[in-house]
Structures are given as C-alpha cells and as structure tokens.
Design a protein around this nucleic acid. Structure first.
Lengths: 210, 210
DNA sequence: ATTTGGCTTGTACCGTCGGTACAACCGTAG
DNA sequence: CTACGGTTGTACCGACGGTACAAGCCAAAT
C-alpha cells in the first residue's frame, strides 16, 4: 500500500463504466462457482481483457476477486450502517436486530453480492494463504468491536475467552446467512424480519450475560 | 459400491503394512496443507507409488484423501462411542459433555487426525463438488440424531426450524474444535475437561428449551 | 514532420496441476 | 514354452495461473 498499489492505481484510471463492467462480471462469475472453481482464463475471455492487461490492472486472480468482493462489502455496509444505535442494553440489541434485518434485505436485493460474500467465508482458508486478506481482518474487527461494546454495556458475558465469543458469534452469523439464502431458495421463505428476530434471539442466548 | 468399488478392493489386497503406510503418509501430507494445496504428484512420489499404481488403487486424489480421512473418523468415533448415555435430560447433557471431552482428548493424542478432520470442514465446499461425500452426510446425521433425541426428551427447543438448529450446533462444534486446537498451540491451554464444559454450556444456551 | 519514450496490449511461452493411454513387465497356469 | 491377467513405468494430455517480451499506440519534445 506504500506506493498506492501500482496495479490498483492503473485500474482506477480506466473509464468508470469499464471498471464497473469488469467488477460486475467478475462478481457474477466468482459468485456462481466460487473463487477456486472459476477459471481466470475464461473469465478474462468473457471480459474481453487480454492476459497482459489483466496482470497490468490486477496483481493476480486473487486480487481481482478481492477487489470485486470489497465493492460488495462496501455496498453492504453502506446499507447496514444507516442504522443508528440507541443507548443502553436494549438499544444495543435493537441495533443488532435492525442491522441484521437490513443485511438480509440486502441479500435479497443483491443476490450476487450475497453469494460472493459467502464465497469468502467458504474459501477463506484458500484465500489468506498468501498474506492476510485485510478484508477478513475488517470483518473480524467488526464482530470484535460489537462484542466489546456489548461487554462494556454489561449485556454480553465476559466470563469466557474473548476470542472464543467472537468466533462463536461470527460463525453463528455465517450459519444464519447460509440458512437464510438456502431457505429462501427452498419452500420455507423466512422474511428478513423473522430471520433477524431469530438471529438476535440466538445471539442473545449465546452470549448475553446471565 | 455395487461391485465393491474395484479400486478399493485392490487396495485392500495390498500388504496391510503397506496400506497403513500409504494412509498414514497421505494423512500427514493432507493434514499439513489441506486437500487443495497438497500436490498429488509430490505425495505419490513421497509414497514411492507410481502414478499408474495410484490410479489403480484409488479412483483419484479425492478418493485417497477421503479414505485416509475416513480412517481418522473411525478412530475418532471408536473413542467417543465408548460413552454410554444415562436416561433423562440430565443424562443427555452429561453424555454430550463427556463425549466432547473424549473428542478433545483424542485431538491431543492424534493431532494429525484432528488436523485432517478440520480440513474436511474447511474445504467441504470443494470436496462435495462431485457427488456427495457420504462422510459429510454421516456427520450431519450425527448432529441431527443428537438434536432429535434432545427434542424427544423435551430438553432441546423445537420451536425453530430443525435444519437451522442442526446447522447452528454443528457450526458451533466446529468453532470450538478450531478454538481448542489454536488455543492449545497458543499460550492459553484449556484442558479437554474445561473446553467440554464450555462447549456444553454454549450448546445448552443455544438450544435448550426455555 | 519525425523521433523519442512511456503507457498499454498481443502473443508465445513457462512450470505444475490432476488425470489418461498404452505398452511392457511378471508370475502363474496351461 | 506359451498364453494370460494383474500390476507398473513412461510418455503424454488439456487446463490451470502466471510471465517474458516485443510490438502498438499516442503524446510530447526536437
């Protein structure tokens, strides 16, 4: 990041509509079959982007994937961040529930982004093989901050290793995300409101102070 | 399985010590770097096993991986299955805690098997791409049976979609497994007993009837 | 008007991957 | 001695992600 990542700088000087097209198509392809199973060669062909150009604008396959993914997360957080947090413990849990509900609504509105975000979770083991993803760090920090705040308010238990609580909540959130989209494509279609209610109840069970 | 999987039958007619060596070395290699990142070519070379022989005794890379993995799960269940279940709700939870404790002890005694079993979880998305793993099905059924039994005893909540409860418990178990081995290699070293206590408490919070 | 130089791209290539084709090997049974 | 079926060595395949390198292009300088 010191010289502002040379490849990234070049990409950002492409015509904005071309940037948009590249990231949109990449997101579609990666969301369809995941990172590993998507052929970079075929993706570049569909993008009408020569190989030398590809490696001129992106470091490698992983870089393009993460760039497209990051844009999805930006859209996601732009929606979720609109929730304001009331004070006190009840406000904390209301905030959790409302944010989650907006998150599920986002997943319905932008299924490609949702699928791509699930990819990161499914294949994170393969992705952070070379250097921390920094995106995973941001997500981890999101949950850690949340739990720290809940502990500060005295409504989240502090009698268990902090990392364990964070991991449990993070993974339960992933479980719900997966369940929400698979249940959606099946017959049972929970509304974002219902799903968020269940999620909040489960997280409260998981880690609310006794 | 109809004609008893021809490759498997041939493998089982190898000298037992050779069978053992192949599965042991394969387990070590796969446990080290995971399924995807382990080169089949290099693994076969280390095994002094020619390529044509390899495809004579195993269907493909995935088959060898799953065969080694299955042996690990057999060892695991052989340990855990020694626990007998007392009657009633308290007996149910005592059974959960004791089985979990034995599971953690097993992970300390056979870290290779533990690492390999974690691989399956981390890379399951890549592995069941072609045909159900059947091993994943067994594991899923293990959790489902457990929860059904808890519901029959009235001690596990039944007011939430069954699949969701199963997914939550299964994923929380994975979270604990990961935490247990990473915390072990770090400074904080929870004993199997402590970890199993925490696990049981968390699962009770998650899904015990109100 | 032409040459220069830097950003951009086409083309051919690399090593490795998992997997296959096929002929040679080898012990045994005829 | 031959024929045969189970086993193995060897050469090969297409696809993968990634690299080398020279040509193309366009603006600025001479």
């Amino acid at each position: 990041m010191l010289p502002t990542r040379v490849a990234r700088r070049r990409f950002e000087q492409l015509p904005p509509e071309r940037q948009e097209e590249i990231l949109r198509v990449a997101a579609e392809e990666f969301a369809r079959a995941g990172f590993q199973r998507t052929s970079y060669n075929q993706l570049l062909e569909r993008l009408q982007l020569g190989k030398s150009s590809a490696y001129y604008y992106f470091d490698d396959k992983r870089d393009l994937f993460l760039t497209a993914l990051q844009r999805c997360y930006e859209k996601f957080f732009a929606v979720v961040r609109t929730v304001e947090r009331p004070e006190g413990a009840e406000g904390f849990w209301a905030f959790v529930e409302r944010s989650t509900e907006l998150g599920y609504e986002f997943m319905l509105e932008d299924p490609t982004a949702a699928a791509l975000m699930m990819c990161l979770q499914r294949e994170k083991a393969l992705l952070d093989e070379l250097g921390s993803t920094e995106l995973l760090g941001v997500i981890e920090a999101f949950y850690a901050d949340m739990i720290r705040e809940g502990q500060r308010l005295g409504t989240v238990r502090a009698d268990m290793p902090f990392d364990l609580v964070v991991a449990l909540v993070r993974d339960a959130s992933m479980t719900f995300d997966r369940w929400f989209i698979t249940a959606r494509s099946a017959s049972t279609s929970p509304s974002p409101r219902e799903a968020a209610r269940w999620y909040t109840e489960v997280v409260q069970r998981l880690c609310r102070s006794a």
